[in-house]
Design a protein around this nucleic acid. Structure first.
Lengths: 170, 170
DNA sequence: CTTGAAAGTGGACGGGA
DNA sequence: TCCCGTCCACTTTCAAG
């Protein structure tokens, strides 16, 4: 094993197993986790509570089918900016755009990448316009996602814009 | 509103609100959701069940703090391949590499992108080697993630490799 | 870690708009 | 179709050992 890693894991085997189960189905009951691992419910409960407290568990979320939200179109948009020192502001501005689900500051000439989810090319155009309107941005490159070979999470509801956004107060 | 979208939403307002709550905390009880929305538990239960059945809800997962898993290093690796028609096989091969959390087939010259999560540069090197070892891959470009301006999900437990992987059968 | 117990919930059912 | 009220077994959550 030439490229062996040395993980400085802060969790033990039991917690790892609990998290593995929760990763597949976070709505499973503590009792069911306990059953699967041969532990008591209280022990599982206490361990989960502590992991939440220590920030090991950030939260739990639902994975929503993007098509059901009318968001069949995904893309990565890489962004070039100048000057680079404005990166924090650019990051904030990009994140605030409707349809941007993720945004990262990276090394390299294209120092930002945003993952977009939207309903159609009109919507994509709007998003690209908004990104290009950010002051330090001088170039973008759009790569439409054809297929996800491996994907973690579903669509964000905040990506759904348009008429639906209006009836918030119902 | 020039760039207005026309979302063909298949879910109604109530379901959207339920999903919004679940997106923030998927482990909340149906009773609590019902309380927040002024519905009965049964109604909430029934709606969630149907969304699961119809595939609108794909699943529920826990968001794990990557640092706690010893995975402080994230990167995007874009990949060029030839011939392009081998894309499906390349997608599978990339997805199977330990440390690859997401992989997408995209339009453009760099027709794959992978998001990597690992413990250190040694581990990153190993992953890059493995990607470059895939037959049709002739070039990769690595962009280290410095900061996430907006992020959805936590780390995958399957990204944790090394000693820890051994005690699986305990 | 365990047990134990009170309070709360899941999920099924009958029925009504 | 979607919703409500009821109900019981199960689960959560806590305190004590």
């Amino acid at each position: 094993m030439k490229y062996k890693t040395l993980p400085k894991i802060q969790i033990d085997e039991k917690n790892r197993r609990i998290l593995t189960i929760l990763q597949e189905n976070a709505r499973i009951s503590n009792a069911e986790i306990a059953r699967q691992l041969g532990m008591t419910t209280s022990a599982v409960f206490e361990r989960i509570r502590k992991m939440e407290e220590r920030g090991i568990i950030r939260g739990y979320s639902v994975q929503v089918e993007p098509a059901a939200l009318g968001l069949p179109l995904s893309a990565f948009v890489s962004v070039k900016i100048t000057p680079h020192r404005l990166a924090p502001e650019v990051g904030q501005a990009i994140s605030a755009i409707e349809g941007v689900e993720e945004a990262y500051h990276m090394t390299g000439e294209e120092c930002f990448i945003a993952r977009i989810r939207c309903s159609d090319t009109d919507s994509l155009e709007r998003i690209l316009m908004e990104i290009n309107d950010i002051e330090p941005v001088f170039a973008t490159r759009t790569m439409i996602i054809l297929r996800s070979a491996k994907e973690i999470s579903g669509a964000l509801l905040s990506s759904v814009v348009g008429e639906l956004a209006a009836d918030e107060g119902a």
